[in-house]
């Protein structure tokens, strides 16, 4: 019986329904359920993180032992992983907490993770250029509209637009506040209805692929 999907679907239904009702009941214990469930999620997710680490480190370990693919880089990955964890442990012992200003662990965060992350993020400046170049072609009416609004808004954001016409920045704001807002709301309403649809399908057990 446990092997089927029946029991899990039932659990989903019960937990989900309690959560919905707790929205209306501020009294204990219902009022705190949201906080508690998020707390629990982070604990459960923490255990699965070990599954994740097992998956990733396992894959790279296999690459190294079999000398396949970019196994050299896999050493970098595993070294980065173990190095960070070991430094974290050492600094916790040395300073009481690894998240101390003077801790080398903080250095790793500030001088490895932060620059790598923010540089990855800044690649967007380039990708947005190549995407714009490729996509903004006046192929048909819609595409033309897309590209014209994009150009107007771009001009309206920089001083050049003001030089062309002092009304351009105002027009840009108007586009953002009126037609842009209208479509965003329409899409947003659709999304919340769609989310309701998915939620109800899940709670009633109609959609159960997540339990495969």
């Amino acid at each position: 019986m446990l092997k089927g999907k029946g029991i899990p679907v039932f659990i989903t239904f019960i937990v989900g329904t309690i959560m919905i009702f707790s929205f209306f009941i501020p009294h204990k214990p219902f009022g705190d359920l949201e906080k508690i469930s998020l707390n629990w999620y982070s604990i459960i997710a923490g255990f699965t993180m070990l599954l994740g680490v097992d998956s990733l480190i396992g894959m790279h370990y296999r690459k190294i032992t079999r000398r396949t693919g970019n196994w050299g880089y896999s050493i970098v990955l595993i070294a980065g992983f173990t190095g960070t964890v070991v430094i974290g442990i050492i600094e916790t012992i040395r300073l009481g907490t690894a998240f101390n200003e003077a801790s080398y662990f903080t250095y790793i965060y500030n001088y490895f993770i932060v620059p790598l992350q923010s540089t990855m993020f800044s690649l967007l400046a380039f990708f947005i250029a190549s995407a714009a170049y490729r996509a903004f072609r006046a192929r048909n009416f819609d595409a033309t509209l897309l590209l014209i609004t994009a150009i107007i808004v771009m001009l309206g954001r920089v001083p050049l637009g003001e030089q062309i016409s002092p009304n351009l920045p105002k027009f840009t704001e108007w586009i953002m506040q009126v037609p842009q807002m209208a479509a965003k709301r329409g899409i947003g309403l659709g999304i919340s209805l769609g989310a309701l649809g998915v939620s109800i399908r899940i709670l009633l057990g109609i959609e159960r692929s997540y339990l495969s």
């Binding site: 899409i187 947003g188 309403l189 659709g190 999304i191 209805l193 769609g194 989310a195 309701l196 649809g197 998915v198 109800i200 399908r201 109609i206 959609e207 692929s209």
Partner: peptide, 29 residues
Amino acid sequence: IGEEMMAASVYLQKEPMMLGSIAAEDFLK
């Protein structure tokens, strides 16, 4: 786009119950 993605599983399976939920969404619209 947005709701199209949430409706995708219905579109791909076309089971009557799932289609029913889509019709309900439209009624709410």
